[in-house]
Design a protein around this nucleic acid. Structure first.
Lengths: 321, 321
DNA sequence: TTGTAAGCGTTATCAT
DNA sequence: ATGATAACGCTTACAA
């Protein structure tokens, strides 16, 4: 379609039906003042030519509308759908369209660039590597742990949640604490965790890096379970990894939470699907969605003000810790 | 924005900068032949007025493009994101945009209607109640268990999968078989299951209806576990319910698969996250996505032919049965 | 009932 | 380097 010869226009239909463009519009849009016969003739001609009105043209003449793009790393990480669900609901309420782009797989850059070109604004956890793919003029709201200068963003504040988590772990007698991180270097959230831990004179007994998938969590936990001095608590980069860890430990015969406490980050629904249910640092998704859209609004309306927001994670105690 | 006074146009910028429209275009799009001074002046004026090019106009002049809408019942059921992920990838390959609409919550009808108006075609598991909200002229590809006349659709064929499942259950000595269905009346897939079962002279020992959520599954299993003559196998309407059932049984102290076998339908990733891993009737998502887009293509290009496809579910044996 | 004319906001072409 | 002048496909007055 994108490269089809040329789509029939309303003029083609008019010509085929032997009427004017106007009559076609009227017939096709069920407007008054069209004789049944003419209308039928127009409809037939349209069907015949496989005519489809050009949306861009329709919108141009009908007036402005807003579409925003939501860029996600991988739709299969439930974090994104959960956030998307909130965004979708809220965007609809403002009569904004919401386009989602999944960056997993090949050609992420192209996809980011492509969506940026089709929408009025972009929201997303956009990895640094993809940020340059976004046209500088496309209003963008970044969702990130580490704020980036020059853009509108919503950042996450783990401070309070992590302090509560550490306090909880210590209170329940955990001392051999490990982390399952993701990526090549220590993530901000894990660094923060380590720092808070050090305030109590503790240091992680292990810091393992895993692929950001369920399987990565399984493997990381398997390794941890096998290592000589097994940890008695693990903080995971996110819930997906944590759920994987739960499974890895279960397989290795390590009981959670008796032998080891497991804490995730995100507060996803899957945390309640598993047994034991996952204790996690949860983010308030509705709030996150609200903040993000609020910034989009500010960006689109050009009204200045502070384009930065912070949402805090809170500790949700369930069964795994 | 949708109702903002009126957005500044390129003409406003041109006027403000004291140049022609064309110069503005050139300056803003980094084209050649613009003096640095002029360019700067234009940029300033644009920034000043918070000018944003009208996408509809840009698209109109740049040529046709295709956007398809994917209507989902609830993004939080992992089935949808998994399918969306496939669709997204494939749509991108064809240079089609993909808009997702989550129908959960209030105002589903409006949302369906709204998206139908913004896209070139719609794909989705669209409940009968919402179908009428789609403009009759919007090409639509329905994904459903029960084919509906007059539209293009992809239907699911459980026959083979269900036969394999029944054979497996019988071969492993299960005789007291129950179902956890969803909705008010027996779903097609469950009816089929019951029918196949009857061919072996068996009938479900229980048919419970649950809310289509994880929690619904938990409750259904809890009830089944408590009932006097507990089933030794359960087929669930989908994986989300099945995972809930797994949890409900675990809580009730009923072992899976020793005491009861649990089988889901869909083949979602979450089935591998839980312990024991879920045995399920899986659908080939990539294939499903391919078929759906193939039909969209046929619809858009107006080329006739058979607009119906069938994809079969296959039994994936894991640990729960 | 139907047709004519005038845009909608942008980019492309061709002058200047 | 800059500016007229046409499109792009559609809808909405306004005529006929």
């Amino acid at each position: 379609m994108a490269t089809r010869a040329k789509a029939p226009t309303i003029n083609d239909v008019a010509a085929a039906a032997g009427v004017s463009r106007q009559t076609v519009t009227r017939a096709l849009n069920d407007m008054a003042d069209v004789s049944p016969a003419t209308k039928q003739r127009v409809m037939d001609a349209a069907a015949d030519l496989h005519y489809r009105p050009n949306r861009a043209a329709q919108r141009l003449v009908r007036g402005r509308d807003v579409t925003i793009g939501f860029v996600v790393g991988d739709l299969r990480n439930p974090y994104y759908p959960e956030l998307a669900s909130e965004l979708s609901r809220r965007a609809a309420a403002r009569e904004w369209g919401l386009v989602m782009v999944d960056l997993s797989g090949q050609g992420g850059d192209e996809r980011v660039a492509s969506v940026a070109g089709r929408v009025d604004a972009v929201i997303g956890h956009i990895a640094t590597e993809h940020r340059s793919a976004i046209d500088a003029r496309t209003p963008t709201v970044l969702l990130a742990d580490d704020p980036v200068a020059g853009d509108a963003w919503v950042r996450f504040d783990y401070e309070r949640g992590i302090r509560d988590a550490v306090a909880h772990l210590l209170a329940t007698g955990r001392r051999r604490i490990a982390t399952i991180d993701h990526g090549g270097v220590s993530s901000l959230r894990m660094s923060l965790f380590t720092r808070v831990l050090s305030e109590s004179g503790l240091a992680p007994v292990a810091e393992v890096f895993a692929a950001d998938t369920h399987q990565g969590g399984v493997e990381a936990a398997t390794g941890l379970a096998a290592c000589g001095s097994r940890p008695d608590a693990v903080l995971c980069f996110n819930d997906v990894l944590a759920v994987g860890a739960l499974k890895g430990f279960a397989r290795a015969g390590v009981r959670v939470p008796q032998d080891v406490a497991v804490i995730g980050i995100d507060g996803l629904d899957i945390g309640t699907l598993v047994t034991p249910e996952l204790t996690t640092l949860a983010v308030d998704m509705p709030e996150l969605a609200d903040r993000a859209l609020e910034l989009v609004d500010a960006l689109l309306s050009g009204r200045g003000g502070d384009l930065h927001r912070t949402v805090a994670h809170t500790l949700v105690l369930r069964e795994s810790a």
